[in-house]
Amino acid sequence: MGTIVFFIFAILAIAAASGVVTSRNIVHSAFYLALSFSGVAVLYVLMNADFLAAVQLLVYTGAVSIMVVFAVMLTLRGEVSDSNPENRKWGWGAFISVLLFAVIALVVLTNSDWRVLPSAWTSGGSAEDMSLLLLSQFMIPFEAAAVLLTVALAGAVILAKGVKENQ
């Protein structure tokens, strides 16, 4: 049962990902991206990482709409059905992607600590354990990420609004 569901959604995610790069319409590409993220979210659920799945939906799939807005805003000038032209250097892109995939796969496969838990965290749901980990063992990266995001937010505001001169 789980295997069938896995293959359905894995194929869906990969097909949607290929749709992202091959679709000629940039808005379609963005929507394919949302589909791909949703497929990955289902895979997370199958790996008993339900918190991660919810985050994936909330953060990644939900934010794709922003990307669509950007895609529409950036491309309305021309014909939108031909807004995502093929790149002539796609061969290089494919090569680098394959290389990247191979490296990640190698790391994952050789790492002995990589395993899927047989069931969800038993103590108190995955959220509780994850929050404990985030606030104890990974405290510094967590805080650093928070600072980084704040800085990024402030930077974005400044870039968008501009700094008043003579102040």
């Binding site: 939906l57 799939t61 939900g62 669509v68």
Partner: peptide, 9 residues
């Protein structure tokens, strides 16, 4: 919350 965020899309 995660699910309802997709309705924007």
């Amino acid at each position: 919350l995660a699910v309802s965020s997709i309705s924007t899309l």
